[in-house]
């Protein structure tokens, strides 16, 4: 399973990178979202998929899956949400003030 997941990670990262290199703000925001998914999967894969039971302590003796990546990912999901929301508002603001969402038109002053 690890190999399969890692290949999926590779595909996600490729897609995210391509999106980040775009000139459209919306593409870049989407790219950052896809990249986050890739990183989450990567964390999961690094933790390994061993262990029989979800990390909730029960009565019977069993092995648990690695809880640490899950805690990290949980944090990451929430922060990613905040960042995405900020990006979207920023994009909206850029459009309001510059009347474009194309980064090629947002190069600052020529004479700088």
């Amino acid at each position: 399973m690890e190999t399969l997941i890692i290949i999926v990670i590779g595909v996600l990262i490729t897609s995210a990178t391509y999106l980040l290199l775009s000139d459209q703000i919306l593409h870049i925001i989407l790219g950052s979202g896809v990249l986050t998914h890739a990183v989450h999967l990567l964390l999961m894969a690094m933790g390994g998929f061993k262990g029989a039971s979800e990390p909730i302590i029960g009565h019977e003796q069993t092995t648990y899956v690695d809880a640490l990546p899950q805690a990290l990912i949980l944090t990451s999901i929430v922060i990613n949400f905040a960042i995405t929301a900020f990006f979207l508002v920023l994009a909206y603001h850029i459009y309001q003030s510059s009347n474009t969402t194309d980064l090629r038109n947002l190069r600052g002053y020529r004479h700088e």
């Binding site: 590779g10 990262i13 897609s15 290199l21 000139d23």
Partner: peptide, 26 residues
């Protein structure tokens, strides 16, 4: 959005590097 070969090349390379590193770490 126009398709760009150069961006694709960069994207595929980055994806490949990550895949290989993840495999090695695993």
């Amino acid at each position: 959005a126009p398709f760009k070969w150069r961006n694709l090349l960069i994207a595929v390379s980055v994806g490949f590097v990550f895949t290989v590193i993840a495999l090695a770490v695993n």
